[in-house]
Design a protein around this nucleic acid. Structure first.
Lengths: 226, 226, 226, 226
DNA sequence: CATGAATGAGTATTCATTCAT
DNA sequence: TATGAATGAATACTCATTCAT
């Protein structure tokens, strides 16, 4: 890899810095930290065990992160970034917007299923950094929610979806996903992931009422259905 | 429950114990503990401050609870018990089962809105007692879920609700509620509680598709709708 | 000792406080701390060794002093208080003011000779608490200097001492004592203490010039000698 | 000194070393070290900040001094050497021996007044290197004291000074100077330096007694005054 | 020669728990 | 029964020193 090649600058005095080494090291540290913080909890994780896992000295960790807390937070942040990449990638493989929803939900649940350590870290984060105004998860969620709102607004304009405020839709979906993810995490998932995703989206798309009941309830829930 | 029964020894000598005193004290301790654990976090809460808050000696706490952890867990458990009472009470005021769902969702969100300390405790619990197989919240949820499944099974039998597996419905609703509750807790609620509850239930009852789209998607999502 | 008797207050709940015990404990701790801090230096003295010396737990020390630093400072302060008592006591045994000076100087040098740990602590104090505006030693010195200035002013009024500003006299004497004390401490004293005290005071009282030289230098040094 | 001599290897190949460069670098390091050690204390001074101050790598310091402690000690030693040069230079400008005393005292106090960092270092030295038999200051003092004893012996022989043991005189003067220097350092000087020096020497030369009192006390203090 | 990345020994303080009173 | 004095295990972070480059 050319980025990792050490191009000798001819007259550099002393031990040259290797920035790519530092970046690689940073990632290795975050990997180990995420794993161990999730495994044992933030408080119970002596940075020594992180260092041991990596076979480096404890002091080395402090060369890359100024404190235990900052290391932890960096690990959470990287996790959320990866979640986003994962969901985005899943959406790109699908054309139909309604199917994108299923794909996104599946990717979301799948990410935390494959990396339960990040679910754990989200909990730890809140428990330990109670003051931080907004948990990292919600920072990322809010950065992301706009595109979904647009998507639903478009579908409403196209007449494919009822004229419900897009925010209401994204809220219900986001929260159902969020709640399902944690429930899976805490109690163990029993249904296949994709089925789970499809079931959630199915309920939200079609509702659960029979046509007869739907008529009976009439205006109350069935706002302007064009 | 049998473990909490106080077996009366028939003819106690001397000054009769006042069991209600002990019970009252227990509750006072749990109140103070819930408040302080939520305020400062489990680890950061010195039992001394709990004792101070109650104007008792630290040793006294140990007469009522065998350890800090058990005190904490008891506080969480009592919170969940109260949540259940609160939701049950709300349901009893409503006749129509579909409206019961709205009432329950409203009571659920309302409880955590009025007592955010219990949301905090749920997080703390997981962060600290990572080993306990199942969080208290889910123990209570599972003890409770059966009656909702029956309710939906009944509605399906009555033809008011599509023939969707009741478990799927309770899952979506529970998780949407759970997710909404934590989202409210973390980011601050912006919508009135009852509106929030109604919006969730509305989406789940009616779905978001337009009739036209519903037809277009046909069988895929609209399993046996009788 | 009546002050140490535990008078039982009839209806005191719980383990009663024993204030005299606390005071005794405090002194024991200060004794051990002064000794060990002087022996090993402030930084090199783990409070554990102080605790071990006293056969108590380390936590107990923190019940009496809020930090290592405050324990140290308390030890220094108590030392200076004792120095003062020691010097005062020596003065009271002597009538003639000029002899009081010798007595005070002897007591002063004697105190640090008997308790070299306090000389050590004075140095440690400055080295460690560089910020504290004024070292404990000088706080006590300034609290004490007034009475000596008065004494010299009186002697000048009586015509026993030349009309030199009393402050000049106390400065020279204090500093000569202070310097001698540290020199003794650092290099080991070689002369008997009382001889040393007498020699200092002798030089200061009589000066070192011969009468002939004194005449030759005339007015320059011999301000109004009445 | 032989240990510091650089034995020139006659015909060095390649780029000739510049020994003066090394010497200059050594001095720069000592300057920075003295300043920083005094400013922040020995223990609190990270060698990194010394390196930063000089814009060199931390490793470079170790090319000039084998350890932090030796660097510190070298800085103290150089300070004492400079003190001596300073005092010697002051004496050379004055002819009369008695005036030399004033000049020396003034130079001594002036040196520490201009370079309070060296007073600080003397304290740090003792606090940190409690084991070193004799502080650097006293090593230099003893190397220097002989010439003063000779000076006083000469003055006694000339009949200008009473027949007091010269050691007694040098002790009182040295210690008064030493004590005054530290007092100035700790509490801030209030009198002009030269006045301070003159006042000390004045008291020591003329004493403080009035002629009348001097007669009254007679033999007691006035040993053989020729 | 010079550098700075890596190391890991070293330490004050807190707080759950016990138990003498 | 209630108390609070005593305890000691447990833990993040720094920085002198080394040595590969």
């Amino acid at each position: 890899m050319p980025t990792e090649a050490k191009e000798k600058r001819p007259a550099a005095r002393g031990r040259p810095r290797d920035p790519s080494l530092a970046a690689r090291r940073r990632h290795e540290i975050l990997d180990a930290a995420a794993k161990l913080f999730a495994q044992r909890g933030f408080a119970a994780t002596d940075l020594q065990v992180v260092a041991d896992e990596l076979s480096v000295g404890k002091g080395t960790l402090y060369r890359y992160f100024p404190s235990k807390g900052r290391l932890f937070l960096a690990a959470v942040d990287r996790g959320m970034r990866r979640l986003r990449e994962c969901v985005d990638a899943a959406c790109e493989t699908v054309g139909d917007p309604l199917e994108q929803i299923v794909a996104a939900m599946g990717a979301y649940l799948g990410f935390f299923d494959a990396h339960p350590e990040f679910a754990e870290l989200l909990i730890q984060e809140r428990a330990v950094f109670r003051d931080r105004k907004k948990p990292t998860y919600f920072e990322h969620r809010e950065a992301n929610i706009g595109r979904w709102r647009s998507l639903f607004a478009g579908l409403i304009a196209e007449g494919r979806i009822r004229d419900v405020p897009p925010e209401q839709i994204t809220n219900v979906l986001s929260n159902a996903g969020y709640g399902t993810m944690f429930t899976n995490f805490f109690t163990g998932r029993r249904r296949p992931l994709q089925a789970q995703a499809r079931e959630i989206v199915d309920v939200v798309l079609h509702g659960i009422l029979t046509p007869a009941e739907r008529v009976r309830r009439g205006a109350s829930g069935g706002r302007k259905s064009r």
